[in-house]
């Protein structure tokens, strides 16, 4: 069974490229435009990995991860945060919230695939 990845980013192009990259590597991908939207996608289905931006409208990535981690079904779901270089504080916030992995923006598709592969294989 293919592993499912939820990508949360308010940028349509990022969702599109990351989605395309991961799909072509054999992952299933669902996406959400912000934290709030992402929470609605957590409807009990099995999600093996979450990739989330930090700065998003409606609900930012860190609040989303915190909220997600309160749900038993997603308590241990690994999270890759999309951080920016120099935003060490944000990275630490993310880690405190439960997002232990990160990819620094701007990134190239191969880098994202690389980071994902470290956590789950398709």
């Amino acid at each position: 069974m293919a592993k499912t990845i939820l990508i949360v980013d308010d940028s349509a192009s990022i969702r599109q490229v990351v989605g395309l990259t991961l799909k072509s590597a054999g992952y299933e991908v669902i996406d959400a435009v912000d934290g709030k939207d992402a929470l609605t996608k957590l409807d009990g289905r099995k999600i093996n990995l979450v990739i989330s931006d930090v700065n998003m409208p409606n609900m930012d990535g860190i609040s989303f991860v915190k909220e997600m981690k309160t749900k038993p079904a997603y308590k241990f779901t690994p999270v890759i945060m999309l951080t920016t270089e120099g935003s060490e504080a944000k990275k630490r916030d993310g880690q405190a919230a439960g997002a232990k992995a990160w990819v620094v923006k701007p990134f190239q598709p191969a880098q994202m695939l690389d980071a994902v592969s470290k956590l789950i294989l398709p």
Binding site: S13, I14, V17, T84, K105, P106, F107, Q108, P109
Partner: peptide, 8 residues
């Protein structure tokens, strides 16, 4: 910046 990076 973030998205532009994706496309090199």
């Amino acid at each position: 910046k973030g998205s532009a990076g994706l496309f090199g």
